[in-house]
Simulated assay, not measured.
Amino acid sequence: MEAYGASHYWARKLAKLGHTPKIMASKYVAPFRTGAKNDLNDAVAICVVVVRSASNA
């Protein structure tokens, strides 16, 4: 998830549900965002960053 004010709160909630959340700085997400900044474009950009970083690991 992209880091913002409540990221750590939601990360703890997701961890309690059995997920492994990872918080990334928005400066890594912004270059991959297409179009205006909104929730959908942010989510797509986060997915692109995660897929690209997993393939580079």
Rank of each mutant, 00 (worst) to 15 (best):
M1V: 04
M1H: 03
E2Y: 04
E2I: 07
A3S: 07
A3T: 03
A3Q: 04
A3E: 03
A3L: 10
Y4E: 15
Y4D: 15
Y4K: 15
Y4S: 13
G5I: 02
G5P: 01
A6M: 10
H8V: 12
H8T: 11
H8M: 12
H8C: 09
Y9Q: 11
Y9I: 12
W10I: 06
W10L: 14
W10P: 10
A11I: 05
A11T: 04
A11E: 10
R12W: 14
R12A: 10
K13G: 06
K13T: 10
L14Y: 14
A15Y: 07
K16E: 13
K16L: 14
L17I: 02
L17H: 03
L17G: 03
L17K: 04
G18A: 03
G18M: 00
G18E: 02
H19A: 14
H19I: 06
T20A: 12
P21Y: 03
K22H: 05
K22S: 11
I23D: 05
M24E: 12
M24H: 08
M24C: 08
A25H: 10
A25M: 08
A25L: 04
A25G: 07
S26Q: 15
S26A: 14
S26K: 13
S26N: 09
S26V: 15
K27C: 11
K27P: 04
K27A: 10
K27E: 12
Y28M: 04
Y28F: 08
Y28T: 02
V29W: 09
V29H: 05
A30M: 15
A30K: 12
A30Q: 15
A30S: 13
P31F: 08
P31Q: 01
P31C: 06
P31E: 05
F32H: 00
F32K: 00
F32C: 01
F32V: 02
F32I: 00
F32D: 03
R33V: 09
R33D: 04
R33W: 04
R33H: 13
T34H: 09
T34Y: 05
G35N: 13
G35F: 08
G35E: 11
A36P: 10
A36G: 14
A36V: 06
A36W: 06
K37Y: 09
K37N: 04
K37P: 09
K37H: 13
N38I: 15
N38D: 15
N38P: 15
N38L: 15
D39C: 05
D39P: 04
L40Y: 09
L40K: 13
L40M: 11
L40N: 10
N41M: 12
N41C: 06
D42M: 05
D42T: 01
A43K: 00
A43M: 02
A43G: 00
V44S: 02
V44M: 01
V44D: 01
A45S: 03
A45I: 00
A45N: 01
I46V: 05
I46P: 03
I46F: 03
C47P: 00
V49G: 01
V50P: 10
V50A: 14
V50H: 15
V51M: 13
R52T: 11
R52F: 07
R52A: 08
S53H: 09
S53K: 07
A54L: 12
A54T: 14
A54D: 11
S55H: 09
S55D: 10
N56F: 11
N56Y: 10
N56R: 03
N56K: 13
A57I: 06
A57H: 06
